[in-house]
Every structure is written in structure tokens, then in C-alpha cells.
């Protein structure tokens, strides 16, 4: 599930700094910082400490047998092993393909859906509700039904064969190349409703007068989209783009449900590869190293994200 863009500036009141705060007001502000404490302590214990452990693990020899005994330091050996075997590189490439497909479909169809569902009406309303409901369903449910639909005797292949488009069923989930694309498609299926909602909110902000004026000037549907709608969703697009990329990058649930990384290693994206190495092959050191590479990718994306939010705020 994708998530939300906060603004990065922390000033809550414009001009608050210029007013010289009375001592009482300053004390109140200090008191408010205490509100951060409970969540801070909790995250320090359950998010940051585990991340430190992940880093330590990635430079140690750890198997499931030695998980809770002292770990032997091996330096960068786990990272080297990952790259030497070609698994890390292959995982990176698959992740890249996966992210490109999810992002292209998720953004493109998300915007198309927002434009189509912008109009009021029973069909649009019901369709939007259906899409948001699908988005709210657990990924395991969506993944299960698509695994069923994309099977050899599933609905998609039945329709393809009945209409004569294909002689033999398409091996959606067990062909090396199809599998990655199929899972990426289902991932974008799951993110399109959210993107459509966000785009739709941006489109709803356009004054109706703008469309009326354009209609007077003889603008057709395409002109409306190109010259009114696209410019008005541009700031949103940037933030949503980064969010969708992150969503695709860290995604694992549909891979888990639909292919479990297979066939062979065909859907071993980087995050899922790290998981398999730790929990299926019980090499926690290697899995941790792969995950650290994933985390580094996330840090890069987080920096891009922070910059794009700043830019959006500067524009609006």
C-alpha cells in the first residue's frame, strides 16, 4: 500500500519565529516535544535497534543455528558472495524491470482512471468505490484470486483460447519472463486505485469555470486533458511517482503469494531474494547483506522523495 507525503518544513505557524515568544509560550512548546517521546522510544527499540542488528548481521557469518550465539565477523564477505554468485546483480535487474512496469502502469492507468472517474454519476461512483474496496483488501486475497485467474485453466486463458487469440494457454506464472511481468501487473492493479484517488483529488481542485472558458474557446476533450488537467496534476505527479516507485521497489506480498520467487529465480527481486536467503536457506548473514543493499536503494529514494516534496511546496 502506498502512503503519504508530509511536508518537510516543521514550522507550524507562519511568523511564529518573528514574534518573541513569552516564557510561558516557550515552555509550552518545550512540553510539546515530550509528545514525541513515547513513539521515539518505541521506534528506537523496535525499528532502529533491529536495523543496527541487520547491519551487524550483514558483516557476520550467521545461520539459523548460530542466530542467538555470538556471530563471527567476516567483513564484507557476505556482500562479496552475493555479487560473486551473480544473485544480487540479477536481483537488482529484476527489481528494475519490476519497478518500471509497476510505475508505468500504476501512474498511467491511475491518471486515466482519475480522468474517467472525475465525472459524477452512478457508474463512476460505484466503480470508484469498487476500486477503493479492492485496494483495501488484503494483498493475500488479491494475489490469490489473480493466481487463480492467470492459471492454465483460469479465466484469462479461457477467454484467450475461446476467442482464438491463443492456441495454447499462456504460461503467465511459470514462464521465466511472463512470471515477473504478471506479478508486476498485479502489483500495479493494487496501486492504481490509490493513485487514481490522489489524481482525482487534484483534478477536483480545478475550478469549473476553467472548463467552461475552455469550452467557449472550442477546446475538445484532448485539449482539456493536455492543457488543463495535466498541468494541474503536475505537482502531485512528482510526489506520487516517487511513492509508486518505492511501492514497487519494496513490494514482496504478491511475489510471495503468486510465485514465491519462482519459477527458479525468475521473480527473485532484491527484497524477496534477501528474505529467501534468510528464511528458506537459513543464511541470515547473506540475507542481511542483500537486505542492506535494498535499504541503501530505499535511502536514495527517500532523499529523492524529500527533495520532490520540497519542490512541490515551493511551487504551490
Amino acid at each position: 500500500m502506498t502512503s503519504h507525503a508530509p511536508s518537510l518544513d516543521s514550522g507550524s505557524r507562519v511568523g511564529a519565529a518573528r514574534r518573541s515568544p513569552t516564557p510561558a509560550r516557550r515552555t509550552r512548546r518545550q512540553t510539546r516535544k515530550l509528545f514525541l517521546l513515547p513513539a521515539g522510544i518505541f521506534l528506537a527499540l523496535l525499528s532502529f535497534y533491529p536495523l543496527v542488528q541487520l547491519l551487524r548481521m550483514s558483516v557476520s557469518a550467521v545461520t539459523s543455528a548460530t542466530l542467538n550465539s555470538p556471530w563471527a565477523f567476516v567483513g564484507l564477505e557476505n556482500f562479496a558472495a552475493g555479487f560473486r554468485s551473480g544473485q544480487t546483480t540479477a536481483g537488482l535487474e529484476r527489481t528494475l524491470v519490476f519497478v518500471v512496469v509497476v510505475t508505468a502502469l500504476g501512474m498511467g492507468l491511475g491518471l486515466a482512471a482519475a480522468i474517467a472517474l472525475r465525472t459524477k454519476g452512478r457508474w463512476s461512483g460505484a466503480l470508484l468505490a469498487l476500486m477503493v474496496f479492492t485496494w483495501a483488501l488484503p494483498p493475500v486475497v488479491n494475489g490469490s484470486v489473480w493466481k487463480f485467474l492467470l492459471g492454465d485453466a483460469g479465466l484469462v486463458n479461457t477467454v484467450l483460447q475461446a476467442t482464438g487469440l491463443r492456441e495454447a494457454p499462456v504460461p503467465f506464472l511459470y514462464d521465466q519472463y511472463w512470471a515477473l511481468l504478471s506479478v508486476a501487473f498485479v502489483n500495479s492493479f493494487a496501486v492504481i486505485p490509490f493513485n487514481a484517488l490522489v489524481f482525482r483529488a487534484a483534478l477536483m481542485n480545478i475550478e469549473p469555470e476553467v472548463f467552461e472558458a475552455a469550452a467557449l474557446d472550442g477546446a475538445n476533450r484532448w485539449h482539456e486533458i493536455r492543457h488543463i488537467m495535466l498541468p494541474s496534476v503536475r505537482p502531485t505527479t512528482l510526489v506520487l511517482l516517487v511513492l509508486t516507485i518505492v511501492y514497487g521497489f519494496r513490494s514482496f506480498d504478491f511475489i510471495y503469494v503468486m510465485t514465491y520467487g519462482g519459477p527458479g529465480t525468475a521473480t527473485n527481486t532484491l527484497p524477496f531474494l534477501g528474505y529467501l536467503q534468510a528464511f528458506v536457506r537459513y543464511d541470515f548473514g547473506l540475507g542481511a547483506a542483500t537486505s542492506v543493499v535494498t535499504v541503501l536503494g530505499v535511502l536514495v529514494l527517500a532523499a529523492v522523495y524529500a527533495r520532490s516534496i520540497r519542490r512541490e511546496e515551493a511551487e504551490s
Binding site: 519494496r250 527484497p271 524477496f272 528474505y275 534468510a278 540475507g287 537486505s291 535499504v295
Partner: peptide, 16 residues
């Protein structure tokens, strides 16, 4: 940063 962390990366150390 935390919200972007892949769950597959956090599940490994949390298990330990």
C-alpha cells in the same frame, strides 16, 4: 525513511 523500509529487510533482524 522508516516508512519506506522494505518489510522483508526488517523481518530478518526482528526475528533474531
Amino acid at each position: 525513511v522508516l516508512q519506506m523500509m522494505p518489510q522483508t529487510a526488517t523481518v530478518i533482524p526482528l526475528f533474531q
